[in-house]
């Protein structure tokens, strides 16, 4: 896309700061709101291009984890659901909302799996617990935002 989302949003944030800001000099509330709006534009500029990619990476990682965990000595009912989720249909589209729809039940199952392996003192459970954290850290790391000075 040309201009890119990032270019549009950063340009708009710059216009808020350079063109609108000076006209608000006597209104502390309006200045504060304009700063927040400009900041949101800067954050959207960072996230727009990568949001779908982050969700795709997360769902791929969760499928792999569920497939592995379905082979572990967890209760049979949970293993069956892990296997079904690992083999569930791929996303119909790669919109953010479409990917979130796929990811939501996976994250709910991840909570269940994480709790189940935490509760087990067995040796085999520790690597699975660590892999739950790997998946969670992957999403948390990819969503980090750079905060410009306010």
């Amino acid at each position: 896309m040309t201009p890119s989302f990032a270019q549009i949003m950063l340009g708009a944030a710059g216009a808020v700061a350079a063109q609108l800001g000076p006209r608000l000099k006597d209104d502390a509330f309006a200045i504060g709101q304009a700063q927040i709006i400009g900041l949101l534009m800067v954050l959207v500029a960072q996230e727009a291009d990568r949001a779908a990619d982050t969700l795709s990476l997360e769902t791929v990682a969760m499928r792999a984890l569920f497939a592995e965990a379905s082979e572990s000595p967890l209760p049979e009912g949970l293993r069956r659901r892990l296997r079904a989720m690992a083999e569930s249909a791929p996303p119909e589209n790669f919109t953010i909302s479409g990917l979130e729809k796929i990811a939501r039940p996976m994250k709910a199952l991840l909570i269940e799996l994480h709790e189940a392996v935490e509760d087990r003192p067995d040796e085999w459970a520790r690597p699975l617990e660590a892999k739950c954290w790997d998946v969670l850290k992957l999403g948390a790391d990819h969503r980090q935002l750079f905060m410009p000075g306010m």
Binding site: E118, P121, A125, R126, E129, A130, W133, D134, L136, K137, G139, A140, D141, R143, Q144, L145
Partner: peptide, 15 residues
């Protein structure tokens, strides 16, 4: 930010 702070912290000390 808080999701990352917690994930970094708890992933260091499992179980």
């Amino acid at each position: 930010r808080h999701n990352k702070i917690i994930a970094d912290r708890l992933s260091q000390t499992t179980w």
